[in-house]
């Protein structure tokens, strides 16, 4: 190595150091991921031999009404959860940013659910949704003379009912990101705007929101991916971890898990994984374009 220039030698060393994580990622991450593609073309119960079946798993998926329902559920989590959770966390962050007394404590309180194990959280909420007199929410409803709601036992209400703790738990993280974004906006912009006579709605529209765009895009990507991969809450809040009643709350990831580890149907599970991968890829590409379109 003595014949090399310093720059070259540094590059060689950099590559030597990079080789280790690279090898690790290729072996532990990328190779199994790629293998999922070939697995999706086979029938395999983990125990017997792997048999090539062509596109049979995909055909089965297209013909399976449960798969389409699961896909619809997955997008329902996303389309309901994303706007609500971003709007809510922005609202909290925007006002928290203006609070001086107890700011630290409030921020900590909002962040707390984010640190809680999803399983513990799910079980507490599962009890909240019980019928009266056990369930908190139904007790409140009965105090106000409102009819009892089935929540998790309804094919219509169950999915939003699971989404609520998901949004609540993610709030803390999103608020912290928004707060950081808000703090990064130079005070002088606001001062200049005020001197020019801009009102606070105008400042929000013209200064805060545009300058917060990077935080928004970042949260848009991470929250979308998080919602599309929702699993623990559904698994722990539905009877037998099944994503019921009648598949009403089952997201794609739970369906993949059940195919793979309850039915040992690795091929079908992989085919669903490929679908999830394509969705996540398209979504990320779309969002990266949005990020680049930023002025």
């Amino acid at each position: 190595m003595s014949g090399l220039t310093i720059a070259r030698r540094q590059a060689v060393w950099a590559w030597i150091f990079l080789a280790l994580p690279l090898a690790y990622f290729s072996l532990v991450r990328f190779w199994p991921a790629l293998d999922a593609f070939s697995l999706s073309l086979s029938k395999w119960n983990l125990v017997g031999p792997r048999r090539y079946v062509g596109l049979a798993n995909y055909e089965r998926m297209a013909a399976d009404p449960v798969f389409w329902q699961v896909l619809a559920n997955t997008f329902e989590y996303l389309l309901l959860g994303l706007p609500v959770s971003l709007a809510l966390s922005f609202l909290v962050a925007y006002h928290l940013d203006r609070v001086q007394t107890g700011h630290g404590l409030l921020r900590a309180l909002y962040f707390l659910p984010h640190l809680t194990t999803a399983t513990a959280l799910a079980w507490v909420w599962r009890w909240f949704y019980q019928p009266a007199p056990v369930g908190l929410f139904n007790n409140w409803l009965s105090v106000f003379g409102i009819a009892q709601q089935p929540f998790l036992r309804s094919t219509f209400q169950a999915l939003p009912a699971i989404l609520v703790p998901a949004i609540w738990a993610a709030l803390g993280f999103q608020i912290v990101i928004f707060l950081a974004g808000l703090k990064a906006i130079p005070r002088s912009y606001y001062e200049a705007a005020e001197i020019d006579g801009a009102g606070s709605p105008q400042i929000l529209r013209e200064i805060t929101l545009p300058l917060l765009l990077p935080s928004f895009v970042f949260l848009l990507i991470t929250t979308s991916i998080g919602l599309l991969r929702i699993f623990d809450l559904v698994y722990n809040m539905t009877a037998g971890g099944d994503g019921g009643p009648l598949n009403a709350t089952k997201p794609l990831v739970l369906s993949i898990y059940q195919s793979a580890f309850a039915r040992m149907d690795m091929g079908y599970a992989s085919a669903q994984t490929v679908v999830l991968f394509v969705i996540l890829l398209l979504l990320s590409l779309l969002q990266m374009r949005l990020l680049r379109a930023r002025p």
Partner: peptide, 20 residues
């Protein structure tokens, strides 16, 4: 043949009757 899938058939049957 497949305990978990066969169980699910029964669970769904009762949910159809009770909820639907």
């Amino acid at each position: 043949v497949d305990e978990s899938s066969q169980r699910k058939v029964m669970m769904d049957m009762m949910d159809r009757i009770i909820i639907k």
